[in-house]
């Protein structure tokens, strides 16, 4: 772990939990080693702020793995509305739509608006396949963004960075950030102190999970080098429609569930497409995520909740 004034790992360790009706998976760091634990019912949310992550809503998808992706997105929003503690905002890590069609974006927007939260988006590869190669996404979600839709914002001393790694993909490759975005990132970070907590969100994972399936980002090492001096970096990704987690020094990476359909674990199927599960089990594979930050040098607490147990 980076040595700085933020050494909160081996204190008595206030666990930041969300009030949750039902079981969730809480990821914490203890001595630099990730642990997951099922959390039962309510923990009182501590002061500080929290936010949500949803991902891969694929509105418009209607194949056997889930004939109603819009329906399960609405169920995810219902679950969010049932949470008693108010998150500050929501992040959507992309693949909002399935085919970048206007009606799909409209339907997604309408469902997500029910949560009555500010939403910060980054595109997935399914969001930039309109006939104008990503302009449809930018017109809706890219008002304050640069390039293909990257940007940063601050909340209560935490610096949030939305990156785009789904455009200008090269044959045979994985995700791609590109030099223009990396230059912007270097500039964005240069005046920040190393004790600023950083949250990076992007669609495709920023660590290599399965290169034969494109599950990784070709030039993520360059981004991670820029982030290496910071004491607390949390990376939130989507794309793979399942939970995975990795810790590397001060950087914790988390991929999220989809609200639409699951995908197989690497090496367990010939291709990374939609995974058919028994209809009664689908909602165990879909979910939303809450992330809590407490000022005072604690790592962020990430809690995943499936739509059903």
């Amino acid at each position: 772990m980076a040595q700085d004034d933020k050494d909160g790992i081996d204190r008595r360790g206030a666990l930041e939990c969300m009030i949750w009706a039902g079981t969730g998976v809480l990821w914490t760091l203890s001595g630099g080693v990730p642990k997951s634990a099922l959390i039962g019912s309510a923990h009182a949310a501590q002061s500080g702020f929290s936010f949500l992550q949803i991902s891969d809503s694929h509105v418009g998808f209607d194949k056997p793995a889930n004939p109603n992706a819009l329906g399960t997105l609405n169920e995810a929003i219902d679950k969010i509305l049932a949470m008693p503690a108010g998150p500050a905002f929501m992040i959507h890590t992309g693949d909002i739509s399935h085919l970048s069609k206007p009606k799909q974006f409209d339907d997604a927007d309408q469902a997500i608006a029910r949560a009555k939260l500010d939403v910060h988006y980054v595109p997935g590869e399914h969001d930039v396949i309109d006939e104008n190669n990503g302009k449809a996404y930018l017109e809706r979600y890219g008002k304050n963004a640069k390039g293909a839709g990257w940007y940063a914002f601050d909340q209560a001393g935490v610096h949030f960075i939305g990156l785009v790694n789904v455009v200008n993909l090269k044959a045979g490759g994985m995700g791609n950030l590109g030099d223009e975005q990396l230059a912007w990132l270097a500039d964005d970070l240069k005046d920040k102190s190393a004790s600023t907590p950083i949250v990076v969100f992007a669609h495709i994972p920023l660590w290599t999970i399965a290169p034969e399936w494109g599950w990784g980002t070709e030039d993520s090492a360059k981004a991670l080098a820029l982030l290496s001096r910071f004491g607390s970096v949390t990376v939130l990704n989507g794309h793979i429609h399942q939970l995975m987690q990795k810790v590397e020094g001060a950087v914790s990476f988390y991929t999220a569930r989809s609200t639409a359909f699951p995908q197989p674990a690497p090496g367990t199927a010939p291709a990374p497409g939609p995974m058919l599960v028994p209809a009664g089990d689908l909602r165990k594979y879909l979910g939303v995520r809450a992330v809590a930050f407490h000022q005072g040098a604690e790592p962020l607490a990430v809690t995943d909740a499936a739509l059903a147990q």
Binding site: E125, K170, A171, G172, G173, M174, W213
Partner: peptide
């Protein structure tokens, strides 16, 4: 050629 959504497909 390749797939722009899944560039590992060539």
């Amino acid at each position: 050629y390749f797939c722009a959504l899944h560039p590992h497909m060539t």
